[in-house]
């Protein structure tokens, strides 16, 4: 275990059961780096996850308080929790299925409400824990275990969705961009509002094996890197390009959801005392 892991994680829950070479552990380390650089302690951060590889492999690794919601509902749970525990930082680490398929409505409405949480959507471009089926973020045309002829549906970019819904911080990065990712996560955590960080990473076991034809971690990382550059290592144009970086930064520009509700309570109760209605019980 490295120093950061020793400082923040639970020794009993490390290493996880993730496949060898999986990017989930690496990204978690980068999250720890961001947390550390911001000076947060274990008790400052609540760690929430979903179901799937991303959820299960990170759940309970965090040394502070953890919750692993049902599939897709991490943000719904976080909404209630934030109301009760508004002073905490929330890292909601979920998969692309969790965030952008089964849980999309909660994602959209958490963004709309400007709920004060940071969502880390770790996107391996498919439902990997169920064996590698395509998801709404699988690039069109790619082969997975449920798209043997190439994924027929168009995919979408969850960053566009949350931005349109009102997220106050939106960024995209990948498992090939260490420093950029740490920088982005730090910024996300400093927004007292809804932050969405989309991190693509390779699943060697499924997406790598079926869509790209290799279980080699480096080759899979290379494929991702090429698509952030728009060029393959041998100089050819890639079939599409991912623009990474901060896509929208309106951090701290509008009130956070739990604060809106607290302020409303304040107004209602002030009015009640002014009116002298007392109203004690009723």
């Amino acid at each position: 275990m490295n120093k950061l892991a020793q400082k923040y994680l639970r020794p009993s829950q490390i290493p996880t059961k993730a496949c060898h070479g999986c990017g989930i552990g690496m990204i978690e380390n980068w999250l720890l780096q961001a947390i550390d650089e911001l000076g947060f302690k274990q008790e400052d951060v609540i760690f929430g996850t979903g179901i799937g590889c991303v959820g299960r492999q990170t759940f309970a690794t965090w040394g502070g308080d953890n919750f692993g919601a049902t599939h897709g509902r991490a943000l719904a749970v976080a909404t209630g929790l934030k109301i009760a525990q508004p002073d905490k930082k929330y890292l909601i680490v979920v998969g692309d299925g969790d965030a952008a398929a089964i849980g999309t409505s909660h994602l959209i409405h958490a963004a709309r409400r400007n709920l004060g949480v940071t969502v880390i959507c770790e996107d391996n471009m498919g439902y990997e824990s169920t064996g590698g089926q395509f998801s709404p973020t699988t690039p069109a045309g790619y082969v997975t275990n449920s798209s043997p002829y190439g994924m027929a549906e168009p995919s979408f970019d969850p960053c566009d969705v949350v931005k349109a819904a009102g997220a106050t911080f939106v960024a995209e990065t990948t498992a090939t961009q260490w420093h950029q990712t740490v920088k982005i996560v730090k910024k996300a955590l400093q927004n007292d509002g809804f932050s969405f960080v989309h991190v693509r990473f390779p699943c060697n076991e499924n997406f790598g094996a079926y869509a790209l034809g290799t279980r080699d971690t480096l080759k899979n990382l290379e494929w991702i890197w090429e698509h952030t550059q728009g060029r393959t290592v041998d100089g050819k144009e890639t079939d599409f390009t991912w623009e990474t970086g901060i896509k929208h930064d309106a951090s701290n520009s509008r009130p956070e959801f739990s604060k809106i509700l607290r302020d409303m309570n304040e107004r209602v109760r002030t009015k009640m005392t002014e009116k002298g209605s007392g109203d004690g019980g009723h």
Binding site: F67, V77, A78
Partner: peptide, 17 residues
Amino acid sequence: EDELAGMHMCAGASLGG
């Protein structure tokens, strides 16, 4: 946004005390 969210939100709030 729906009842699924509603009950999960309540569960979150109760977990928060």
